[in-house]
Simulated assay, not measured.
Amino acid sequence: MVVTMGCSKNDDVAAPAATGRYSNGFFIVNEGWFGHETGNLFFYDRSADSLVPNVYTKENPDKSLGKVSATLQYTAIYENKLYMVVKAGGPLVVCDANTLKETGRMEAMPGNDGHSFLGINSNTGLLGTGSGVYLLGLAPLAVNAKLQNVTGYVGNMVKAGNNVYIASRDSGLVVINAGDYGFVKRVKGVNMGPVTGIDGNVWVTADSNLIRINSATLNTDTVKLPIKTYSGWGAWRSTSMAVSTSENAVFIVRNGSFSGGREIYKYVNSNKTSVDKPFITLPEGEYSYGAAVGYDGRHNELIVTTVNGQFTGDINRVHFYNAATGELKKTLTYTGWYFPAMTVFH
């Protein structure tokens, strides 16, 4: 593996004091090379300004993230625990988010197909799968009852206000009560999302529409986009959207139905002209991969992962953009068949 850097500038915001080896930076979740090796985590260490490869196996040399036929597709941090969901075979692995030492695992997934995780409280989470959503006990780690109000192939999930918003291939966006998991509302035709904005409201897309759902009233507002958006259901991946915590804005990657894209749009709430043109256009020969876009609130940066092909590639780049201006601040490059799925921030 080769790591190179360019366009380097000093960070504008000092990072908070680290409380563990993996506190001051962010994780890159790599799917792994299907059929050859499992997925793993890279860590960008801001203290050293360097990218550290395969940190999960470094900290847990006697553990594995499933078989080479599985894919590490989704990871989330909840209450200082890092939950790694390995698609197509499992396992679900839990680590300390600051030391990366494994603290728990569940070898098998319902239907052999885990997708996403959402923490509800200290004892309970939700596990999104290819066959619906399951209650997940966190202490100890165990699959419990299946939710009856969400069926079929499930993707991203967020909690906002009193409700949980769940992306479903069969039903669009399903809204359920976060207390008793009862059905609340359905929004049909959703392609991307959900993500939660700085104002607590929820964003999704439906074809060429960007929809904001008021988390208190569930009323919706729609903005017309100059692009068509596509879902990731064909080979599920986390949604290609991110939100800012410095301004009321949402970022949308222009992907194809299966291929990556080169443009990222930024919608600033109540400013319809903000999406008249791309906020960021990737360099020639680079294409978004996986979720592709993540937001680092500690530094107001947009982190974008790319590969050197529309469908595949062995040159992986991590771009650091100023999330307010779109200015490219820095680029990291690592070579190999890693397939970056998403970025995860403390």
Rank of each mutant, 00 (worst) to 15 (best):
3 V>D: 13
4 T>M: 08
4 T>Q: 12
13 V>A: 04
14 A>P: 01
16 P>C: 08
16 P>G: 12
20 G>V: 06
20 G>Y: 07
23 S>T: 13
25 G>V: 09
25 G>F: 05
28 I>C: 11
31 E>V: 09
32 G>I: 07
35 G>I: 02
41 L>S: 03
42 F>M: 07
47 S>K: 15
58 K>W: 03
62 D>F: 03
62 D>T: 13
64 S>W: 06
64 S>M: 09
66 G>S: 01
73 Q>L: 00
76 A>R: 05
76 A>F: 02
79 E>D: 09
79 E>F: 02
81 K>D: 06
85 V>M: 05
85 V>R: 09
88 A>D: 11
89 G>S: 00
96 D>Y: 09
97 A>W: 12
98 N>H: 07
99 T>W: 01
102 E>W: 03
104 G>S: 11
108 A>G: 07
110 P>Q: 12
111 G>H: 11
114 G>P: 08
116 S>D: 00
120 I>R: 00
121 N>M: 09
122 S>N: 15
127 L>M: 02
135 L>C: 01
135 L>W: 01
136 L>P: 14
137 G>E: 11
140 P>I: 09
143 V>Q: 13
149 N>A: 04
159 K>E: 02
160 A>R: 01
164 V>R: 12
169 R>Q: 15
169 R>N: 08
175 V>R: 10
177 N>S: 12
177 N>Y: 08
179 G>Q: 13
182 G>Y: 13
195 V>D: 00
204 V>E: 06
211 I>E: 10
212 R>H: 03
212 R>S: 03
212 R>N: 06
214 N>E: 07
216 A>Q: 14
217 T>V: 05
217 T>A: 05
219 N>F: 07
226 P>H: 05
229 T>R: 15
232 G>C: 04
233 W>E: 03
235 A>M: 13
237 R>S: 06
238 S>Y: 02
238 S>L: 02
241 M>V: 00
246 S>P: 03
246 S>L: 02
248 N>G: 04
257 S>R: 10
268 V>N: 01
271 N>D: 12
277 K>R: 09
277 K>N: 01
279 F>A: 06
280 I>K: 14
281 T>P: 08
285 G>P: 12
293 V>A: 10
293 V>K: 15
296 D>N: 02
297 G>N: 11
298 R>I: 02
299 H>P: 00
300 N>E: 08
304 V>W: 14
310 Q>T: 15
321 Y>L: 11
321 Y>W: 13
323 A>H: 00
325 T>V: 08
326 G>K: 10
331 T>E: 11
331 T>I: 07
332 L>D: 08
333 T>S: 13
336 G>I: 02
341 A>C: 04
341 A>N: 03
341 A>D: 02
